[in-house]
Amino acid sequence: MQQPDLSGARWRKSSLSADGPSCVEVAFINDAVAVRDTKDRDGGTLVFRRDEWRAFIGDIRSGSFDNLT
């Protein structure tokens, strides 16, 4: 996937981050979802296609990552 233009992205903090120090932000851009570290906004961005994002979130909700070492 080509890196989307994030200059006009509307970032929002994860609702699970509360006001803690470990936070992520997401932005929905056309057919992609971008994720970045709130503490290091210039440090890089992960970009997922929407179907990849849905699968990732589904795996988290189902506990599929609980047994990773």
Rank of each mutant, 00 (worst) to 15 (best):
V35W: 10
P21I: 14
S62I: 09
A27V: 06
L46R: 05
S64E: 12
D59W: 06
W11F: 01
P4V: 06
V26H: 07
L6Y: 03
V35M: 09
D40I: 11
R10K: 14
T69D: 15
K13N: 01
V24K: 04
S22T: 14
F65K: 03
W11E: 00
P21E: 14
R50S: 02
V26A: 08
G20S: 15
G44N: 09
D40W: 10
D66S: 11
D5K: 02
A9S: 00
K39F: 05
F48E: 04
V33L: 11
M1T: 09
S62G: 11
D37Y: 01
D59I: 03
D19C: 13
S7K: 13
S22R: 14
C23T: 09
D37P: 03
G63W: 06
R10M: 08
L6H: 03
R50W: 01
A34F: 03
A55M: 09
D66G: 05
T45Y: 07
V24T: 06
F48H: 03
G43L: 11
R10L: 10
F28K: 02
T38V: 12
A9P: 03
Q2R: 15
L46E: 06
A27S: 12
V47C: 02
D66N: 13
F56L: 06
R12C: 06
S7C: 11
G8M: 06
E25P: 08
V24A: 01
A55W: 01
C23E: 08
L6K: 02
D31M: 12
V26W: 07
A34I: 05
F56T: 07
D31T: 15
